[in-house]
Design a protein around this nucleic acid. Sequence first.
DNA 1: TCGCAAAATAAGTTTAGACATAGAGTGTTA
DNA 2: TAACACTCTATGTCTAAACTTATTTTGCGA
Lengths: 236, 236
Amino acid sequence: MTEKDLPSSSKAQAIAAEVRRRIVDREWRQGDRIPDEAELAVSFGVARATVNKALQLLADEGLLYRKRRAGTHVAVNPARKATLTIPIVREQVEQAGMVYSHRLVAQKTAPLPPEVAARMALAAGSPLIHVRSVHFGDDAPYQFEDRWINPVAAPGVESVDFNRLNPNEWLVRNFPWSRADMNFRAENADATDARMLETRQGTALLVLERTTWNDLGAITSVRLAFRPGYNMVAIP
Amino acid sequence: MTEKDLPSSSKAQAIAAEVRRRIVDREWRQGDRIPDEAELAVSFGVARATVNKALQLLADEGLLYRKRRAGTHVAVNPARKATLTIPIVREQVEQAGMVYSHRLVAQKTAPLPPEVAARMALAAGSPLIHVRSVHFGDDAPYQFEDRWINPVAAPGVESVDFNRLNPNEWLVRNFPWSRADMNFRAENADATDARMLETRQGTALLVLERTTWNDLGAITSVRLAFRPGYNMVAIP
DNA sequence: TCGCAAAATAAGTTTAGACATAGAGTGTTA
DNA sequence: TAACACTCTATGTCTAAACTTATTTTGCGA
């Protein structure tokens, strides 16, 4: 067993691909312990660090389970991971070949409602900037955005005109976050959603809710309702 | 500018954290070019490989943009990524502290409908195994699974009794995939969804659709409809 | 037989050094 | 001035060697 052909770009990736193949082809079965890094390094004719990199990759994918001293095993129930890219709406729309536009529906300071306060770990009733806007692709509603922005963590919000630059981009450019939590679900469109997205009340909408933080606390909490039929793609 | 305190486990992670901090605190601003690896290595008192690892990490996160010769820049519009873990349903239910059970609704060989055929790149009408089952948590419907399995890519399916082991686990254990595509959306429950998930027709449901492949072709294509109100969490 | 400490081992991480390579910058020439 | 080839540089990747650390195994003693 010496070096294989190198179909992929780097040696590490080639080794990862070969190990993946052995697993998929059931040469190495679920639960099996695979040869240790040193052995693989010899058999592939590379340094151990290179094998390590390859195996780390597969472990991140969830295909391998590694433990010190115990060795590397093929995962029994590979709970595979998928990556979601959350792009800037405008870029997403433009990439789909549509013309982007957005309409600011409301921008005002308002007392924070309790359920948003809970998500942001702030006191209910605190004065936050409440922004609602709709993003369009070729003049059809694409996404309805309902956002609360904390002027403490994002100083300067009060005096921004979100008609020019949409809140998403303004925040992304000016307030990188250090922590975020994000989740999504399906919701039946309420009256507002329906009006904003030009659809009927009750239509199933994919809703993404995200709260971001920096050292000063919660920056923003947003609810994004996508247009009916929107399909989110995840890459394994 | 010498070494900082090392809050995290490894040096690479500590450096990544420090760089992240400088970006979040706007010491390094969007679009700025940051010092090159060699310089950072000196200022942090580590080897270049360690700095490289740290910066790679942040580039994967989408926070940095790196190009040969041009250097490393702070991303202008950081389209951040989030990771979804798609666990085995049973494990997910049990982790939530509920008792798992599942009910096989149907298991038969049937001609492949056109839209599924398209997803699997197979000829419509091919005989595939069609399995429908419901997963329960504490006797409440948790997920409705509608799955097509290709006996060519997954030999042995014909003779498996999915009453004992659910199709998801059987496949995961026996047919690791090499490629998958996955996407999700919101759908209004149709009559079948409603019956299976014990809800009303029209209820918004989070639907995940996934097709997996190995060398022999498409293994399986599945539509998972989650119980109403289900919340999917993504980790940044 | 049980409990515990010591030894062994495999992964995890780092280092210094080397070479590869994309691609920005520069200078030459038509 | 534009097209082209050349140079140079920052990242990308790999290596060999060492050290660290979690965990299993072993072996000793009660």
